[in-house]
Design a protein around this nucleic acid. Structure first.
Lengths: 299, 299
DNA sequence: TTAAAAAATCATTTCCAGTGATAAAAGCGC
DNA sequence: GCGCTTTTATCACTGGAAATGATTTTTTAA
């Protein structure tokens, strides 16, 4: 059974005539006859009463409900891939916790307002988890930090972050080696982009055995740091957000550790869905140097 | 876009491999490649990441949701026309008021129990209205009385009715010409099968100007007859049903007027839907001579 | 009954789904 | 990295059927 046959069958019922259907579909009447006949042979039932106007038989009526749904679905699918059509469906995004908390609320709110037909699915995880999901086609795009990737994944810088050392107590200067060795660090589990920076920091200070608590939630990390449980390395913008809820103290780090670029990871361009296409278009204006969350803000 | 292409595409995603999909669908791998490639060209998007296992790209993921729905609908449609499959969907029946009131409740209850996937639509009307609807493919079948039809409609006798003269007051014998001329008759509007019998009765009694009230509802007719508004000509079985609610008196008529056969009208066999097919099968046992409503009764 | 319109039939062309063999590419073990 | 295996892409070819245009048959309306 061909979609084309169903399309023709539907047109015959709608117009009440084989020849009118042919004209509407830009083909010839004998072709319409052939398609209908083929359907009737395949299903072993008479589908149309050849009268003027042509009407569907009970069996035809039954097929018609399927034909309408299938043809409609088909047209929808084609339309959704058409470059000038408004995208619909879902946009599956991934993000690190920190980015989700700080940058995404404004961004996604604007996006969802701009494209009301799109449902955004947001999943958080570590950079390496998210990258794997992008690679596996489970996510359309993901915000990640500092990862090397194969050439099937494309990275685009979107936010420039400055990592700072965060503590619950005032920090005058960088803690010395001994203090650092005794103070636990709080971080996301293995695979988080920032965690790599912690290890670089320890190596630099020649601290041998870093003690790192692995938490799955940003709220938990910040809360525990504020409670004096230990130190953390977080983007300055994230800390700013939590300042209202917790008493936090920060210390700037040398640029070599501090600078972290959040990048938007996707597959290569031809794989993009229309939904992703418009999302990436909206992200075009986002320069790593001049971050502004209002990419999709209403003008 | 062919249903076949979507079926193949779906199989590739499900199996994670072009060659496995080919095997599952009993074709060759190069054919699978060709179909996928054709889809990608048509939609101008990369749908699959050629890796092991093969995974859908965001665009592919988008198409997949359509592919699944379309292929499923297609399989459903084919299955519904398969002779050994349980029928599903709707069965659109028509019936005269009298038949609907007396014979259908038991019949349809049994039918609906026997075929739970079928939704019965019942429409009442006059015989000629219903016949026209059957002819136009709007009804699968209709219970009608005493009509001549073209040869695209097929009639099958199902109930043998005896018409009786009904009154609100005791009837000893056939009213004389004068009484008959003065007494109004209550009947369905033009097109009712029984109404034709009334006219035959008047002609026989040589009553010139029958006065006929036209009511659209059986309840109204019976109620008004019981209230003494006039006479009616109704099937004996119908009157029996109303005896509990109204005080009705009847008079038998000569067989020439009394005998009316209720027939089941359909289009010719090849037009039948599977739903109609099983309904007609169930009606097979219904002999006009030996009416029993329990055609679909549970054994 | 006849003229006009619509569907069926038929011969023909064109296109493409499906096939099998082979080349290229990707994964995997060492 | 290097070969070995597995998987996908490419290609030439064939059969079948979609599409076409001309013609006949049927239906409808005048």
């Amino acid at each position: 059974m061909l979609i084309r046959s169903l399309e023709i069958f539907r047109a015959v019922v709608d117009t009440g005539s084989f020849s009118a259907a042919a004209e509407r579909l830009h083909t010839v009447q004998s072709n319409v006859t052939a398609h209908v006949k083929k359907l009737e042979t395949e299903l072993d039932a008479r589908l149309l009463e050849r009268r003027t106007p042509v009407v569907a038989t009970p069996a035809g009526h039954q097929l018609l409900s399927y034909a309408r749904r299938i043809v409609e679905l088909h047209d929808d699918a084609v339309a959704r891939f058409h470059p000038q059509a408004d995208p619909a469906g879902e946009l599956r995004l991934g993000s690190m916790e920190t980015t989700a908390a700080v940058h995404l609320p404004g961004l996604l709110a604007g996006f969802s307002r701009r494209w009301p037909q799109l449902a955004v699915h947001l999943r958080t995880g570590t950079s390496s988890e998210l990258l794997e999901a992008v690679r596996a086609g489970q996510l359309d795009a993901a915000f990640v930090a500092g990862e090397k990737v194969g050439d099937e994944v494309r990275l685009r810088p979107v936010f420039e972050e400055r990592l700072v050392l965060v503590s619950g107590r005032p920090l005058k200067a960088m803690p010395d080696r001994v203090t650092l060795a005794q103070t636990p660090f709080l971080a996301f589990r293995q695979g988080c982009g920032y965690r790599h920076s912690i290890e670089k920091l320890f190596a630099e200070q020649r601290v041998p055995a870093p003690r790192i608590h692995e938490f799955g939630s940003l709220d938990a990390i910040v809360g525990c740091v504020a409670a004096g449980m230990g130190l953390a390395l977080l983007p300055e913008s994230t800390v700013r957000q939590y300042r209202q809820r917790f008493e936090l103290h920060t210390l700037a780090l040398p640029p070599a550790f501090a600078a972290v670029t959040t990048q938007l990871a996707t597959l290569q361009r031809p794989s993009w869905s229309r939904a992703l296409e418009v999302f990436m278009e909206g992200m075009e204006g986002m320069e790593a140097e001049r971050p502004r969350d209002g990419a999709f803000a209403v003008a």
